[in-house]
């Protein structure tokens, strides 16, 4: 196996008696963008939660920078350099835009991302810095959520459905910033329902179906037929 920054090896996950993931194995190399696609309930968000430490996992099922991190609590995982942009943005409603960003950066991990760099990436946030985070539009809130995750200077950024509930023009706008983020040497895992968007930005694609990897390969080599078969299992 090539030397991956993140390796998920035969990961299972459960919600009570319900098993959500069955032996998932994926790899993410340094500076690579990996897309995880799949229908609703395929286990995409569960996979990200396991990696981020928000759900229990077998210790050696998740290996980051050659160290097993499965089952470590979330605040320890983020200190190792994995940040999650949670589904539905989940900004802190009683904090201003800037305070949301500062909470993301409170671990003080060294790296390129500072308040100023985040504002350079999303200039509109500098104008709205003092406003309550809830007063922003959906797209702007998503920018705060991404900026907040970047403030911890992660080596691996996990993005859960960042296009959810946003207008196509706003989605394009947000995805247009991705190259600038990857240019800093960060690896990115994107969970998306918007397959066209996912294929456009990703190097590698995994398609999940009912908790299993149904398809995996180079994004360029994917065809509509292959994805449709893996997506729906027909």
């Amino acid at each position: 196996m090539p030397d991956h920054l993140l390796e998920v090896r035969a990961l299972d996950a459960h919600y009570g008696d319900f098993q959500a993931l069955f032996g998932i194995s994926i790899g993410v190399s340094q500076g690579e963008v990996v897309a995880v696609i799949g229908a609703n309930g395929a286990g995409k968000s569960t996979l990200l939660k396991c990696i981020a430490g928000a759900m229990p996992a077998r210790g050696d099922a998740i290996v980051f920078d050659r160290a097993p991190i499965g089952g470590l609590p979330a605040h320890v995982v983020v200190a190792r350099g994995i940040a999650l942009v949670p589904e539905g943005r989940r900004l802190f409603p009683s904090l201003s835009v800037e305070e949301n960003l500062l909470v993301g950066g409170q671990l003080g991990r060294p790296g390129p991302w500072t308040l100023k760099r985040v504002y350079d990436l999303f200039p509109i946030l500098a104008e709205r810095a003092r406003q309550p985070s809830t007063s922003l539009s959906g797209g702007q809130q998503q920018m705060v959520a991404i900026g907040r995750a970047l403030m911890s200077n992660p080596r691996l950024l996990l993005c859960d459905e960042i296009s959810l509930g946003l207008a196509p023009i706003v989605i394009r706008d947000i995805y247009a910033r991705l190259p600038a983020i990857v240019a800093e040497g960060i690896s990115v895992v994107i969970v998306e329902q918007d397959i066209v968007q996912a294929l456009k930005v990703a190097n590698h694609v995994y398609c999940l179906q009912e908790g299993r990897v149904a398809l995996s390969g180079e994004a360029r080599a994917m065809t509509r037929e292959k994805i449709a078969a893996a997506y729906f299992g027909v």
Binding site: G53, A54, H75, P86, R90, F92, V103, Q106, L107
Partner: peptide
């Protein structure tokens, strides 16, 4: 305030 707002996400931001 962040922990009061949303405990799981506060944890994801590195707050114990």
């Amino acid at each position: 305030r962040a922990t009061s707002d949303d405990q799981p996400v506060a944890q994801l931001m590195g707050l114990n």
